[in-house]
């Protein structure tokens, strides 16, 4: 890793140049640079080493299994089989369902999370009594692990003793209990509800943070222009936080895509494999012992997300420039 210690152009460097400083000698600067480079390399080293050893080494080592016949139930033949595992996956009649489920899972969780999270953030932006107490309470889902959320909702969605059915029946919406986790459509709904519940808070926090960094002068100016609430929202607020919002959504998509915990705890991908997303299916194959196929699936995930991220960021760029 080569450090040429060239400073990024930031607004602070302008401040720096404004302050009266004696011009540095060329030689002096160079020596200084070399030393700095070593310091900076030292700063980067711990992070790089940790990530290389504990993330990249196992990942790369795991990836090679994708091209081998690697089944823990019988390791007598672990020969290289090229794209064999990928072919098996694509030929699996369930693969289409799993991909479709993954899309439904990501979009179905994300959109309500963004919308509700945004609304929540807008309401939380202005100070009101008990706001900090309210914030602390509303942060609660974020404190719970995915597995626990899954178990918690599995219990609430229990057909016979679950509180969801009981409330729906009390309210008169249904007459007989719904077998939530036993019917594919209901099960998918239930896991997405659980995930929405989990994610709204995160968005609310991130968006609230972004909103608070929008300067009040902009709003005041808009108010003077006589802009209404809706217009202010679309012409001031949204553009101002567009970048943060865009990046948050991207990160969130990646996380939801890679988030098997809730589903695994609630349905384990069932009934009839109808609530599997790619990552839960990966757990399933791992448990069956077929590490080769699981790794192949893992690689598919990594490349899909990489491609997606690249296109997403390219699509975001013009908006960034407009700012």
């Amino acid at each position: 890793m080569a450090f040429d210690a060239q400073r990024t152009v930031t607004r602070s460097s302008e401040t720096g140049s404004a302050s009266p400083q004696p011009p540095k000698e060329y030689r002096h600067k160079k020596r200084f640079n070399a030393r700095t480079a070593w310091t900076l390399a030292g700063f980067m080293a711990p992070a790089a080493i940790f990530v290389a050893i504990f993330t990249y080494y196992p990942m790369i080592s795991g990836s090679q299994m994708a091209f081998r016949n690697w089944n823990l139930n019988d390791l007598s033949d672990t020969s290289w089989i090229g794209w064999g595992n990928f072919v098996t996956l694509f030929e699996n009649p369930e693969f289409g369902t799993i991909v479709r489920n993954t899309v439904v899972w990501v979009v179905g969780s994300l959109v309500p999370q963004v919308v509700i999270g945004f609304a929540l953030a807008l309401f939380l932006k202005r100070k009101f009594r008990f706001r900090s107490g309210y914030q602390a309470l509303i942060f609660f889902p974020w404190a719970v692990s995915g597995f626990l959320i899954g178990m918690l909702f599995r219990w609430m969605f229990n057909a016979e003793f679950g509180v969801v059915n009981d409330l729906l029946m009390k309210a008169g919406f249904i007459d007989t209990p719904i077998p939530w986790l036993a019917e594919p459509g209901f099960a998918m709904t239930a896991i997405i509800i659980a995930n929405i519940w989990y994610g709204v808070t995160f968005f609310a926090i991130m968006i609230l943070a972004a909103l608070q960094s929008v300067s009040d002068e902009m709003y005041e100016a808009a108010a003077i222009d006589g802009a209404g609430k809706v217009r202010t929202l679309f012409s001031i607020t949204l553009p101002a936080i567009a970048v943060t919002l865009g990046l948050t959504i991207l990160l969130r998509i990646i996380w939801i895509f890679n988030f098997p915990d809730v589903i695994w705890a609630m349905t384990g991908g069932g009934p009839a494999d109808q609530t599997h997303i790619i990552t839960t299916y990966m757990i399933k194959i791992t448990q069956e012992g077929d590490y080769g196929q699981a790794s192949a699936l893992g690689l598919i995930v990594v490349f899909t997300l990489m491609l997606f991220a690249v296109f997403y960021l390219m699509a975001m760029r013009p908006r960034k420039a407009k700012r």
Binding site: M59, P260, T279, M282, I283, T286, Y291, L299, V302, M306
Partner: peptide, 9 residues
């Protein structure tokens, strides 16, 4: 973006 399960083994 890496699903953790690829690296567990």
């Amino acid at each position: 973006m890496i699903p953790g399960f690829i690296a567990l083994g």
